[in-house]
Simulated assay, not measured.
Amino acid sequence: AAAAGLGAAARRGLMFRSADGLLDLVEVDTIGLDKTGTVTEGDLKVVAADDAILRVAAGLERFSMHPIARAIVSEAIERGIPLPRGEAITEEPGKGVRGRVDGREWRISTGGPGEIALSNEEGEVGRIRLGDMVRRDSADAINLFVKRGLDVVLLSGDHADVAERIAAEAGVPRVWAEVDPEGKAVWVREAQSAGRRVAFAGDGLNDGPALAAADVGIAMGTGAASSVLVADGVISTWSLKPLAEGFRVADACRTAIRWNQRRSIAYNVVAVSAAAAGLINPLVAAILMPASSAMVIWGSSRVEVSMRRERT
């Protein structure tokens, strides 16, 4: 049944390292969601930026896979701005990026709501304003989480007003804003200390600590490689729908396992008792043994069958 459950989850876009990760979803009562790239498109767009500021920022971010970095570099290329070579680049998860461009030290950090700031040794020199959109199917998936009775929380390093706007659009009841990577992991551990079973879904480098700390960590497969490495499961698409489906698969898998256990025990008790009483001969017993295994296999197939019945 566990193998059947893993297959059913994979067909729906959610792959687990082991059956334990899938079955643990049954016990989850709290789920934390990263904002950028998980609930939102992660396809940030530059709304406003001076060419000179954009040029330096693109030099610092040109080799990063973070959604903010991709937005900056894409905008610079669209404007026809030559990308300078960044040197000694250091990415600080949840804080920003620092490095040298044109022989000067620069740093990108969080600015105001929806903005990042570019600074050098003399201080801030300008800002880049960014915009992001909630994925079209995020609200549907989050609605399924809420209907399941999960405590759903949006966690973001952005300013509170930006995070709250996204949460309102996606239907997320609670928000933790302006949290760094370790802050997300702290949220997970605090919830666990309160007796909660926690799942966390994220896609970025800064989600690694929370993914590792959660009872079930789910990474967006198209996100940072480091998040995939520490997660229990991976969503193969840019969507939370496979995770919503994963909860249903886990329920069906647990039901099938219990069905198999009950019927296998009953079957063997009856068969052994009959054999001990001399009611069946060795040939019949030999036939009945594989029949028990066949019954378990048939019961395991009920995982996919029950999923299809729910759909209809």
Rank of each mutant, 00 (worst) to 15 (best):
G123R: 06
D137M: 08
R98K: 13
E92A: 05
G99I: 06
E122L: 14
G111D: 07
L130T: 05
E121F: 15
D137F: 05
R98S: 11
D158K: 02
S119C: 09
G131S: 15
A141F: 01
A117D: 13
P113L: 11
L150D: 06
L118P: 09
R148G: 09
I89H: 04
G111C: 08
G131W: 06
A88N: 15
A160Q: 15
V134R: 02
V97E: 06
V153M: 15
V101L: 06
D102L: 03
E105M: 15
G94C: 14
W106A: 05
L144C: 08
R100F: 08
N143P: 03
V153P: 10
D140E: 09
R136E: 12
S109D: 09
M133F: 09
L130I: 10
G112H: 11
S156F: 00
E122D: 07
V153D: 09
G131P: 08
E91K: 06
I108P: 00
V134P: 01
R107K: 13
D161E: 14
E124M: 13
F145L: 03
T110H: 14
V146G: 04
G111M: 06
L155P: 08
V146T: 14
A160G: 12
N120P: 06
D132E: 06
E115M: 11
I89T: 03
G99S: 13
L154G: 04
L130K: 05
A141E: 01
D137T: 11
G126Q: 11
V162N: 02
E115P: 00
T90M: 14
A88E: 15
G149C: 08
A117R: 08
D151M: 12
G112L: 12
R129S: 12
G99A: 05
D158N: 01
D132S: 01
T90V: 15
E124S: 07
E115D: 09
I108Q: 00
